[in-house]
Design a protein around this nucleic acid. Sequence first.
DNA 1: CGTACGTTTGATCTTTCTCAATAATGGTGG
DNA 2: CCACCATTATTGAGAAAGATCAAACGTACG
Lengths: 245, 245
Amino acid sequence: MATVDHSLEILAHKLDLHHRLSDDDKQATLHLPQKIRRLEAQSYVLREGDRPERCAILLDGFSVRHKLTGDGSRQILAINVPGDALDFQNMFLQESDHNVQMLTRGVVAEIPMQALQELVLSHSEIGRAILITTLIEASIFREWAVNIGRRDARTRIAHLLCEFAYRLSAQTMRPEELYELPMTQEQLADATGLTAVHVNRVLQALQRDGLIERERRKIRFLSWEGMRDVGDFNPRYLHARDLAA
Amino acid sequence: MATVDHSLEILAHKLDLHHRLSDDDKQATLHLPQKIRRLEAQSYVLREGDRPERCAILLDGFSVRHKLTGDGSRQILAINVPGDALDFQNMFLQESDHNVQMLTRGVVAEIPMQALQELVLSHSEIGRAILITTLIEASIFREWAVNIGRRDARTRIAHLLCEFAYRLSAQTMRPEELYELPMTQEQLADATGLTAVHVNRVLQALQRDGLIERERRKIRFLSWEGMRDVGDFNPRYLHARDLAA
DNA sequence: CGTACGTTTGATCTTTCTCAATAATGGTGG
DNA sequence: CCACCATTATTGAGAAAGATCAAACGTACG
């Protein structure tokens, strides 16, 4: 008799947060066929133009979604944390329109797209949960566009740091005051539409102003309220209240 | 006996494009209870923080999705064209995270959220079509973030003009060479993260370079390939190939 | 221990913004 | 139909945020 592998627990948990699932739904999720894969930092999970046959669930580590422009510059569009599905989209769309790349080394569970499609067909509540996940992701894309388009460098960086602090503590509902940013300053620049040099100067300014402390990539918020104000951060767009707590 | 109102035809058609619907699905869509409402230019369809009880379908005219920052500046996130559902999102999420505002005067059909929810529950293929619509919208948000974050002003404007030309002709698959832009230069600025003054200068430059002609808000492309290249425009992100043609 | 990568610093340059004034346009009431 | 008013478009001059270039400095890790 097959042993149940609990590596997909984190996915079932996340879906359950977005839309309450029955025990049957959860069991079906846990029993999806999967292959565990270890990935190096910088490796690609998915490339623009791909037509993937498997969907990766991020179990450990961090990845980003990004796109490249014609002249080769990069815009990071989202940061994925453990539990995120990296490619629900291609269950329904043919060609991937962006890249997914590991920020750190990490582990993913790869699920055959077809098995996932069958799961959604036979368990409508799971389809619902996926739709809600997708809607929240879209909301985050919108907030990022606002951040990049209409905020100055200082506000942009502070906003990103706030979002990260907030999302890392989805469970506790209290933003982390100390965390390790899994990105270089260059990646931070690609996420905010700035240059690495300018990101560096802004980080130093935030530190000089007593808002944060830094040690390597560790960020400590000295004042959550201060950072929230500087970053014009209102967590409504994360729709945490819509989670089935 | 009730007469069937065909104003929702455009919605059924769009959903059908995204995921082939059965006749029953289409009929059910057309029979949704609805109230036709005429809206003035600039009027709000939905505000951030609202918990709407009806979902508006845009039947005629143009609207935008936008958000305001703490210091009052505005980022336009998407342009809606007739047939677009302006608020599928709030079928599943409580609070709206952005505004929807009319660009021109127009007409919407308002459908009670609950009727829509029941439709989705009883017609799973419609739920699928809505999910696909949502995924394509999310892809467009991503491309906009790239546009705003990593392209210079000239490229940004050209890209937006290309997208508009392309989307206006979703049927023909050949971008319109002449169309009326339903936005002021200030709105164009809010969509591209620029200022109105700079948008004006860029438009003049595109005209001087023989790429476009303008007369009021009419835009004529003198060279589609030229504009496509200047605007770094690759329509993959619109996922037109995923449409059930 | 050296090497590659990431961070920091300084100087200079460019794009885009800001502010302000003028011109054109369209919609509205008379 | 016309004159008026509000909105939008255009122009110019000057300022500023952020980019670019180049070099030096740290530090993790093989």
